[in-house]
């Protein structure tokens, strides 16, 4: 118990250094090396648990905990540290004040809008003058993939034509959401190459989103700022099914399905 050895770096400073190191590590990794910045909201949650975890390691033994607490205790109680104490007592409220002041500053940034990217679909959908039951709706051409690969290939090709004529302006010729018009849109068009988009969905869901577009989004997905047109007005039912085949074929993704292949 009494083997408190003199450390090169005091425990409390170690604690602070670890946390700062992790923080800047995240920033360096994402913002600089990977070039895709880490969202502030996520970083603050990450840091909360990094601090919690570090705290756990640093306080799980008695002596370590004491080493952490002692400097703080000394700062508050030790008469010889009067000057430091006064400085800390003056600086801390100022820092807190400055933080609150800056966080209350009005900025010109629009408020954060949260959109649910995959809103829950309705049970059924009205399009083309009929009603589709989304629970049982299937791509009528999907079965050809096995039974008639030649025909399937042709359908995929036709779907590709539909895509290039209608969709690529926004979703991009590589289906990565970086079409010529993509820069003008917010939210930006979906990137079908991402594992989080069509690969997570059943074809019936994709059909619903294409057929009814942005205006067909349920209320929970509001605000309806999606620029996706109501394709029901421009494409035939058949064309939508074919373009869906193309989306999955080109990206190499499989639609979400509970069937074994």
């Amino acid at each position: 118990m009494s083997m408190t050895k003199k450390r090169l770096i005091p425990r409390l400073l170690q604690f602070a250094l670890v946390i700062a190191g992790v923080y800047f590590g995240f920033v360096l990794l994402f913002d600089v090396i990977l070039g895709a910045l880490i969202p502030k909201s996520l970083l603050s949650m990450y840091m909360f648990f990094v601090i919690a975890g570090t705290f756990m390691v640093f306080t799980c033994t008695e002596e370590s905990a004491r080493e952490m607490v002692d400097p703080i205790k000394a700062l508050v109680e030790d008469p010889s540290k009067k000057i430091v104490r006064n400085i800390v007592y003056a600086v801390l409220p100022l820092l807190a004040g400055a933080y609150i002041f800056t966080s209350l500053q009005l900025s010109f940034e629009a408020p954060v809008e949260l959109r649910s990217i995959h809103p829950a679909p309705p049970a059924s959908l009205k399009a083309y003058g009929k009603r589709f039951d989304l629970a049982t709706l299937e791509n009528p051409y999907r079965k050809l993939e096995k039974s008639d690969p030649e025909k399937f290939k042709k359908l995929v090709f036709e779907g590709g034509e539909v895509y290039i004529k209608n969709c690529q302006y926004c979703h991009g010729d590589r289906l990565d959401g970086k079409g010529p018009y993509a820069d003008g849109l917010n939210p930006t068009p979906l990137n079908f190459q991402d594992v989080g988009t069509i690969a997570q969905l059943q074809e019936s869901y994709v059909f619903w989103r294409i057929a009814t577009g942005g205006p067909g989004l349920p209320k929970e997905a509001a605000p309806w700022i999606s620029a996706m047109p109501v394709w029901e007005d421009f494409l035939s039912e058949d064309e939508i099914w074919k373009v869906i085949l193309y989306l999955y074929d080109y990206t190499g993704m499989r639609p979400r399905s509970w069937k074994h292949e």
Partner: peptide
């Protein structure tokens, strides 16, 4: 029946 979008009956 249950029209999830609540847009009432849509006529042609």
């Amino acid at each position: 029946s249950d029209d999830e979008e609540g847009d009432g009956e849509a006529r042609a």
